[in-house]
């Protein structure tokens, strides 16, 4: 009973995105009022089809929007009680939010260790070598690859990208499609490590994914986005049991809806709004 009581009490969100609108090139509106909360120490996932605005949401948080001529025109983003929506990307990193961009984006003409050292760019302490060892503990296979990072396999590059994020000792990591282009086995491995890092280090994660199956199972809470809006949110359990989520994102779903007769309702329901 007492356990249930503590669960109901909402944790104070580490990051809260409040009704933001994002416009690219001053004309293209991509986000139309997105709000989400990421409680401390949890994994929150953001799902949705291509072009829904998931990556844009992450970039709005990490400040990288400005490098793509995008702008938060309404709403606010607060991290640990401090507004970060107008901050530069480098200042956001310094306040503790680190984004692992889509497509890994490691520095290909440097070695793994140099990439890891760059992750620690914002730090000034002497424990960087220690942390490199810690990253190698999570990803032992990176230690064997001493050559240029550009020659690493896709999975290894993804691991390096996550390791590079760890090097910054962030409070929160935003992961943009870590499973992109990886073999199913590697996807499993990467998700396991993400979960492990979250548990060991208490690093909060905001996970943008197309691979809904893994993402929902890894996450404590999830949001589903479509055309620049959040259309559904819920705990892992709620999402896994939601008929729509089952049908649109997890495959399977209810048998009856497979018939042609129900196709109309399928189409109607897919819009949600």
């Amino acid at each position: 009973m007492s356990q249930a009581a503590t669960k109901i009490e909402p944790a104070k969100p580490l990051l809260s995105v409040n009704n933001i609108e994002v416009v690219y090139d001053e004309v293209i509106q991509v986000l139309r009022g997105v709000s989400l909360d990421v409680p401390e120490g949890e994994i929150v996932t953001l799902l949705g089809p291509n072009g829904a605005g998931k990556s844009t949401t992450l970039k709005a948080i990490s400040g990288l929007l400005k490098t793509e001529n995008g702008e938060v025109t309404r709403g606010d983003i607060t991290f640990m009680g401090e507004r970060i929506d107008s901050k530069n990307a480098e200042d956001v990193v310094r306040s503790g939010v680190f984004q692992v961009m889509e497509g890994r984006r490691i520095i290909e003409d440097m070695t793994s260790i140099e990439n890891l050292k760059l992750g620690a760019y914002t730090r000034n302490d002497k424990q960087i070598n220690q942390d490199i060892e810690m990253v190698f503990n999570y990803f032992p296979r990176l230690k064997e690859r001493t050559g240029l990072a550009g020659y690493l396999s896709g999975g290894e590059q993804q691991m390096l990208a996550i390791g590079r994020a760890l090097m910054a000792r962030p409070k929160m990591i935003c992961l943009d499609e870590p499973s992109m282009g990886l073999s199913p086995l590697l996807v499993k491995e990467v998700f396991e490590i993400i979960g492990k890092i979250n548990k060991d280090q208490g690093i909060t994660m905001l996970l943008v994914e197309q691979n809904a199956n893994y993402a929902i199972r890894a996450a404590d809470y999830g949001y589903i986005m479509e055309s620049g809006k959040i259309v559904l949110d819920g705990t892992q359990e709620q999402l896994l049991n939601n008929e729509d989520v089952k049908e649109f994102y997890l495959g399977g779903g209810n048998e009856e809806r497979k018939s042609f007769k129900n196709l109309k309702s399928y189409k109607r329901r897919k819009r949600w709004l």
Partner: peptide, 12 residues
């Protein structure tokens, strides 16, 4: 190598 990546690492 890549200015956007550099910025995402906290480099000005």
């Amino acid at each position: 190598f890549d200015q956007q990546v550099a910025q995402s690492l906290g480099i000005s």
